[in-house]
């Protein structure tokens, strides 16, 4: 039986493993954290329709039934051996893999790097991930009892050369609009503002989400990037931006600011990939695929494959499609290899 090592037990890695297992391959799934699920395990409800992340995750976990997986496990070393890859895990397991799939996902941009927004400095500044956590646990000291005004800042660490990320992170507009509606459900009396440069509501159902944020929830969209945030003596946040639609500077004092942190290639994934000469691209740091249209699951190195957010910002459906495509790409590759 052929061995396939899947690195990363997030949505992409789990879905690809389930598919490969059903196709009859011996899958070894390696996850560095104590649980499966990747970022999906951190989210509460998902755009565009508000489906519960927990239900999706539960379904995915029951679907990988039969796949061998290791938690708290890291790849200690990986090197090419003929047409295979010798993978040694830090738990003592060694596998000679016929193919390796990177499903190492993304790291959330560290919002404290955008010092002008005051994350980690001012009391009431949180990130999109923090807010998901609050929706799940209702436990976060930074969120006051009855906020009167709440602001969302789009493009935090994305579309920002100084932050090192020139690209758009794709999922954060939809996340902001979704969270703006959800926070209005929690605090119906609050005024909610979204500060955006462009609203990228590209997917099926996303424009409806935007429309309902406007019409059902009265969310106010202000086109302009927040330039700076200051804390006043009451620990409220004074937000400054330009309302570029009217060409006038704008000021608003708010009780909670939510930063839409973007996506970056996962540093733990990059570290492993580097050992076999697989690297991120210069322009954005995400892994380089064989081409940009037709072979998105293949690395430049034969036998190495990708799925999910490690090759660029992706939604969950995007990531799951790639996982299935990767399973097929691996199957096709191994069949061709054996008939040579």
């Amino acid at each position: 039986m052929k061995n396939i090592v899947v690195i990363g037990g997030g949505p992409s890695g789990m879905e690809a493993s389930a598919q490969l297992h059903k196709m009859g391959y011996n899958v070894i799934l390696v996850e560095k954290s104590p649980a499966l699920g990747g970022h999906l395990a951190k989210w509460d409800r998902l755009f565009p329709q508000g489906v519960h992340a927990g239900n999706i995750l539960e379904g995915m976990i029951s679907n990988i039934n039969g796949v061998k997986y290791f938690l708290n496990a890291n790849v200690q070393s990986i090197n090419a051996l003929g047409k295979s890859y010798n993978v040694i895990l830090d738990n003592g397991i060694t596998v000679l893999a016929d193919a390796v799939l990177f499903a190492t996902g993304f790291d959330l941009f560290k919002a404290e790097k955008k010092e002008e927004y005051g994350y980690g400095i001012y009391e009431h500044v949180i990130t999109n991930a923090d807010l998901e956590n609050w929706f799940r646990t209702k436990n976060d000291q930074r969120i006051v009892e009855n906020p009167k005004r709440i602001g969302f800042v789009h493009c935090v660490g994305s579309r920002d050369e100084k932050a090192g990320n020139r690209y758009c992170s794709k999922v954060c507009c939809a996340t902001a609009v979704k969270q703006a509606c959800e926070i209005k459900q929690e605090f119906p009396g609050a005024e909610v503002f979204c500060f955006y440069m462009d609203l990228r509501m590209f997917g099926r159902g996303y424009e409806d989400l935007y429309l309902s944020a406007q019409k059902e929830y009265g969310v106010r969209f202000i086109r302009g990037r927040v330039s700076e945030v200051a804390e006043n003596i009451n620990k409220e946040l004074v937000v400054k931006a330009e309302d570029t639609l009217s060409g006038k500077p704008l000021k608003v004092t708010i009780d909670l600011l939510v930063l839409m942190s973007g996506m970056q290639n996962c540093s733990a994934g990059v570290k492993v990939a580097g050992q076999i000469g697989v690297a991120g691209m210069e322009n954005d740091g995400f892994f380089e695929t064989k081409d940009s249209i037709y072979s998105l699951q293949q690395a430049l190195k034969p036998g190495v494959f990708f799925a999910g957010a490690c090759t660029g910002p992706k939604t969950l459906p995007d990531s799951l499609h790639e996982a299935r495509a990767a399973a097929l790409a691996i199957h096709t590759y191994l069949q061709a290899r054996d008939h040579q």
Binding site: G218, E228, K248, P249, L250, V252, T253
Partner: peptide, 29 residues
């Protein structure tokens, strides 16, 4: 971190803190 510009308040600035939106609420109705 510098709080540059916060002391200035140009008259053209939109100040949402002092916004009276009673009429707008009526319009929305």
């Amino acid at each position: 971190m510098g709080k540059f510009g916060f002391a200035l308040s140009p008259s053209s600035r939109i100040n949402l803190d002092t916004l009276d939106n009673v009429k707008f609420a009526h319009l929305i109705e």
